[in-house]
Design a protein around this nucleic acid. Structure first.
Lengths: 176, 176
DNA sequence: CACAATTCAGTTGTGCACAACTAAATGGTC
DNA sequence: GACCATTTAGTTGTGCACAACTGAATTGTG
């Protein structure tokens, strides 16, 4: 099923290949999300809310800004999400006294206590993937590498223009 | 930075590991999305709309049902998306004469013509990843494998309960 | 034929991602 | 102290994902 590559792959076939790749990533992301959704229903958390709680459990109270840096999310996503976490009684949002622009996110007792119940989640996730730790780590590194490359390319708009030197991935002998 | 695993990793550390893994996948998915967003702005398509067009270009006209099977998306997602593609003049939605329940999605001339402009996208994506084809293929297979495992686990609710035999990924010698 | 179950698309409601914007607070410079 | 650029959250609007539901068309069964 792996699309083997003839050196002279026509441009049309790249569309099919592209389909394979982006489908895979898109589908994997949603499948992962789906499993977390099932596991987190117990805890009353969505997947992104769980990500926020993981950061807070690990780093303690943080301003929205720092939270966003850890998660690569902006206030447009975090503000309403944090309000929902507050409504659920898991965090408090308090204006910083020193800097009134900043809002400190603090775990409540309930929020801290939830951590105990969350401890069971990672093992179940690991089980659901069917991967062992080495495989998961390898995949993670791969994904981080991909993310870095993509982020760099997105920032540098020129990198997304046609590169004369780039013949498509591995299209000819001696490529890369 | 790879979290090496001592056999007796405490449950707390799994949360950190879990954080690593799900962040990576989440972030990679969004980074990918972001690059496509930049590239597709020219074509006037969002990333999911591009996925729909890829399927139509490859398979020709399809009913919504078939489209959803290819993309693993349901009508709740596809119906509004297809209306937007229709508003953009790229597809037509026509009730099937043979089965009035079914809606056939047909490419318009504009929709078909857009394919020519889309041919440049995959190469730019490949370039942006910095991966060669072999690496991309390997990653794709990995992700498909992951998706299958996760889908299976999500369907079989029992698979997400605690498994006595599952000690966490690769936690001991002779594990899996 | 009648009727129940199924199939299919669409709608509604919730939540997330992100771009673009607003508004308040802060810090630096004159 | 007055002014301006920057920082920080929040808001608004668009689009996607998905669960739950509706309603029409079809199919199977008696």
């Amino acid at each position: 099923m792996t699309p083997t590559t003839a050196p002279g792959t026509p441009a049309e076939d790249w569309l099919r290949l592209d389909r394979q790749i982006c489908f895979s990533l898109h589908a994997a992301s949603r499948a992962f999300n789906g499993v977390y959704r099932v596991l987190l229903k117990d805890l009353g958390l969505t997947y992104p809310q769980y990500l926020v709680m993981l950061v807070l459990w690990e780093h303690g109270d943080l301003p929205v800004k720092k939270l966003g840096e850890h998660l690569r999310l902006d206030s447009g996503t975090l503000s309403p999400l944090l309000k929902r976490l507050e409504a659920a009684g898991l965090v408090r949002r308090e204006r910083s006294a020193r800097d009134e622009r900043s809002v400190e996110i603090r775990l409540t007792e309930d929020g801290l206590a939830l951590r105990e119940r969350a401890l069971r989640v990672p093992r179940r996730i690991g089980s659901a993937t069917g991967f062992d730790l080495a495989e998961i780590s390898a995949l993670r590194e791969r994904l981080d590498q991909l993310t870095s490359a993509l982020d760099a390319a997105a920032l540098d708009a020129g990198a997304l223009e046609d590169e004369p030197g780039y013949e498509g991935p591995a299209e000819g002998p001696g490529c890369r």
